[in-house]
Amino acid sequence: MSEYTDDRSLPRAARAFRLNLLLQRFALVAAILAVWWAAALTAPHYVLPGPGRVWEALRLIAGNNDLWANLGITFARVSAGFAFAALVGLPLGILFGANRRFGVFFEPVIPAMNTISSAIWAIFAIIWFGISNATTIFVVFMTAMPLIITNVWQGTRTVNADFIELARTLRMPQARIMTKIYLPTILPHFFSGARLAFGFGWRVSLVAETLGSSSGVGYRLRQAADLIQTDQVFAWTLALVVMMATIEMGMLRPLENYLFRWKKEAGNA
């Protein structure tokens, strides 16, 4: 219902609030830059490069395709690991939720997996897969999968028995009950699990690439650090932060808002 979400229908006060918030964000970025710049004046550039130097380094790696190629490689690995995790985690989560005995039996595995550090997975991955794409993909997979299973599992517990009864009175076949009632109920849980898993995936992918890869952002970060190109370390970090923020705010949040627009929010009740 567009009239409920359209900006034009927002009261004047809400628009003023948004403008105010935007100004505050600009002020925050300016303040951080100023502190950074001032701090950089007191330190050698290989310890703390200033904003100007980092900007030059960013332009350098962006100019010779270094940035895009390695971001692309890491993104592909994270996506692959994440996709496998979703593919395995969604059905397993539903299975654990649907079958009590199964769920009770496997329950301890999830927290046990969560306690294993991604560095340990990375070491195992190097032993098993060597220096290859599979190493990073494996680490992302092992980190993301338990998160997705846990969330989907919890989602299955929120399926409303009344809706199932409704479907039964309509004599709806079991397969359709799965797709028309279970799936929409689980989807928000799956989505929040997937978002969490994707974020974790990015972080652990860098660890994996630092240890067991000859390409990707993590590899380049370590290389720049080894060569004491501190300005490039900063540049890579900055590029990552911008990319993650773009994915989060430009893709995931709008997608979530669209998919779950049926949820009653405190603001539009």
């Binding site: 009344d162 809706f163 009864e165 409704l166 479907a167 309509l170 004599r171 709806m172 076949p173 359709r176 028309k180 009632i181 929409p184 779950f260 049926w262 949820k263 009653k264």
Partner: peptide, 23 residues
């Protein structure tokens, strides 16, 4: 017709009505 309305919250009014035809 149940005691409570049992509308699926993720469906619009018309999609809720259609639900009865989807079996």
């Amino acid at each position: 017709l149940f005691q409570d309305d049992r509308l699926l919250p993720w469906r619009t009014a018309i999609r809720n009505v259609e639900f009865a035809l989807e079996a």
